[in-house]
């Protein structure tokens, strides 16, 4: 479904991503794990078009998307839920959800909004409040809700568990699994490797801009080296 072929990304003189290739099949949950600064977020930004790779190709559903602007890539139903939630804080909860569905016909989104509200009743309660007034956890729910409103076929999530209480992390990961079961393919970037590997099908491990290991999650969870570096064992 998504095919990234030997991309290189530079920030000025810094060679941030070095020859990274990976793929995501339809229906999978694939995770990119690695330490802070390994280049995980940069890869997602490159796929969604916010950053252009210097070299390399990116194909989505058999089409090259590497030269498309971000707003055109979203229209191919490839959504990116960025790191740090990045909500529109000066807009209401409802408006944030509407922005999530920006590419869709306004008449079709009622049911999906109801679905988000049903999953996160607190958002319905606060639908007319500014997103800035929500707590950190509620903001993450809203960020997930906003991503759901896009009805993507491939959803890229960047650190959805960041800064959340364990109970909320659990809830967010349950939601990811549910979305996947409902047919959304997921590309998940996480620092919480344990959690990510527990729900994903396959994983890629990044170190300073390169993929160092890949495999099924079961294999990665048993990898001695990985255990030491990321899994706290």
């Amino acid at each position: 479904m998504l095919k990234v072929n030997s991309i290189h990304v530079f920030y000025g003189n810094i060679h941030a991503i070095k020859d990274v290739s990976f793929y995501v099949n339809e229906g999978e949950i694939v995770t990119l794990i690695g330490a802070n600064g390994a280049g995980k977020s940069t890869i997602l930004k490159t796929i969604s078009g916010l950053i252009r790779p210097a070299v390399g190709t990116i194909e989505f559903l058999g089409e090259s998307i590497v030269n498309l602007s971000p707003h055109k890539i979203v229209r191919k139903r490839l959504a990116h839920c960025p790191e740090g939630r990045r909500l529109f804080l000066q807009m209401s909860v409802k408006e944030n959800l509407e922005m999530g569905a920006y590419t869709r016909d306004e008449n079709d989104i009622e049911a999906d909004m109801a679905d988000v509200y049903q999953r996160f009743p607190i958002l319905e309660e606060r639908r007319n409040q500014l997103a800035a007034s929500l707590s950190g956890g509620e903001q993450q729910m809203l960020a997930m809700g906003r991503a759901m409103m896009a009805k993507p076929s491939l959803l890229m999530l960047d650190e959805p568990s960041m800064g959340l209480a364990p109970i909320l992390v659990e809830q967010i990961f349950d939601l990811i699994v549910e979305l996947n079961e409902a047919g959304t393919t997921i590309l998940l970037v996480e620092q919480n490797a344990q959690m990510a590997l527990s729900i994903a099908d396959r994983g890629y491990v990044l170190e300073t801009g390169s993929i160092v290991t890949t495999g099924s999650c079961a294999d990665l969870l048993n990898d001695e080296r990985l255990k030491k570096a990321y899994l706290g064992g």
Binding site: P70, Q90, E95
Partner: peptide, 24 residues
């Protein structure tokens, strides 16, 4: 209006506005 909300979104965060499908 939709375009008005898009304007506010772009005003707040250009990158994320693009990720929503808004043409900056």
């Amino acid at each position: 209006t939709k375009i008005g909300k898009a304007m506010r979104a772009v005003s707040e965060d250009k990158d994320v506005a693009q990720l929503m499908g808004i043409s900056v």
